[in-house]
Amino acid sequence: MSDALFEYLCRMGDNTLVLGHRISEWCGVAPVLEEDIALANTALDLIGQTQLWLGLAGEVEGKGRDADQLAFHRDVWDFRNLLLVEQPNGDFGRTMMRQFLFDGWHLAQLKGLMTSSNDQIAAIAEKSVKEVTYHLERATDTVIGLGDGTEESHKRMQDALDRLYPFVGEMFIADAVDQAMVSDGIAPDPSTLRPDYDAMLDAVLAEATLQKPTDDFAHKGGKSGARHTEHLGHMLTQMQWLQRAYPDATW
């Protein structure tokens, strides 16, 4: 039981860690100053959530690992984030499309967690929902604005959607860990979140004048850790470098 819970908490924490890191790569080079501020703010929220999720994961594991040890001292195969969030930023449009696709799932997931049988999880979810509601609102506005903007912005957003859509399915595929969470009343079954997500996606994409790809093929292997993309390893070499190079130091 606690193994599955540990896995589940790592999934939540690794999603926010990896996406928070990706967004932080935008520091100082966003298309407009307001976006620099908003991206830093989103990254900050996600890193804050990571501290809570991975902190709790460490407690549940009971081997004395804290959030930093989990973040900076695991290798690729121990990461449990969705493949979607480790995808490189690409242009600003792709970054915001990735954010929108993730936020829609993330918010639904967190709302489900607010009634979790585990009080600590419910408390983290309650705090995070406020932040993620705003992330989704902003990402939605940007996807609509750029989708239904100029010919160029429309094309870039359609390219972003086509490129990232194959990573959507993984968010909703339930596995043994999810089933264990459902049977303990800890977390919602991700597959039940799909119909509302699809309805939300359809409405936003229609307003953005974007076409949802017809092929529902889904890459998977991120949340199980079975097969990440090549991108994650490069990200970890940068993110974990100081901790790995000076393991005896405190910072």
């Binding site: 966003a30 298309p31 407009v32 976006e35 242009d91 600003f92 449009g93 940007t142 609509i144 604005g145 750029l146 239904d148 903007g149 100029t150 160029e152 912005s153 429309h154 870039r156």
Partner: peptide, 14 residues
């Protein structure tokens, strides 16, 4: 600034 031009133009057009 240059790479963000399409974003600024897109949002303005919208």
């Amino acid at each position: 600034w240059d790479e963000g031009r399409w974003v600024r133009e897109g949002l303005l057009a919208h």
